[in-house]
Amino acid sequence: MSVHIGNGTIEMTSMPSIVGFGSAVGRMEGEGPLGSCFDYVSDDSGFGESSWEKAESRLQQHALEQALLRGSIAESDISFMFAGDLLNQCTGSAYSMRNNGLRFVGLYGACSTMAESLSMASVFMDNGIGKYCGALTSSHFCSAERQFRFPETYGGQRPPSAQWTATASGCAIVGAHGQPPYVRAVTVGTIIDMGIKDANNMGAAMAPAAYDTIKTHFANTGTAPESYDLILTGDLGYVGGELLRDLFLQDGIDLGERYNDCGMMIFDREKQDVHAGGSGCGCSASVLCGHILPRIQSGEAHNVLFTATGALMSPTVIQQGESIPAIAHAVHISDNGNITEG
């Protein structure tokens, strides 16, 4: 049974395995530095659908399909599906789950949803609940823009601190202890709001939440940055990433080379006009499932602290002058499945 240690960290005792993972992305992500890592790339951002909302649901289905394929898992063997996206009422997920009959738990954690859903799936599996549990999230540039910002053909200028919502989806399917990658521990975040009000600077709004969760995770598990070969946030982008380093430096901790961010990895800053990097809950999901998990599986990476961050505002509360509450959840994924006796 999973153990609650410290404040907010849940340690796995059986070390559940991520048995299947898949990713699906749009054209720009496919042309980015990680393009060859993704399982499914479509040049048609409509994914053959008549609305952007339907396109996002279709994108999710592609990621799920790829994850099932990779793990040789029958869809009906997934006992519980934890899924989320950025759309109002989580419709991207609800409509992608509409016809498959899966037990569906809809989650909203903005861009933190991949860590949130993976945490839930892992804790369920660690406690022997179900055969497999899935974690699935998506974001789509066009469906996000029309909901949060402007119409596609509107001529606006994005400030340099703005991030670009990735058209991407990732799916991880967690099963009982078997082959790597394993989930060893998760830390559930608390909402941190440092008063940032600029919805065009979400990296700055989210960096303190990432700092808080990562620090809590270190304290609760007795680990340090050196315990991980990769501390991966998603998606602080260039501005938030820099700020996270600053916050740790104030504690005398240099994250150094082991720190990276999904929003910085998914696009080419020089060639692709994405300003401060990628965002959206499909960004960290696709980078995790397309790039990171395969590397842990093959033994290239050993211990990854995957910390997805979410900005939990809406256009309505921003118009009311509210600042941006942010959250981060951390998942320790490892190629070491040894069950530690505690």
């Binding site: 340099p160 601190s161 440092m194 008063g195 940032i196 600077n201 700055a204 960096a207 303190p208 501005v239 820099e242 700020l243 600053d246 401060a276």
Partner: peptide, 11 residues
């Protein structure tokens, strides 16, 4: 933090 964020945000 607001000042630091401003400093780190490209103009």
């Amino acid at each position: 933090y607001g000042r630091l964020a401003k400093l780190r945000s490209p103009n």
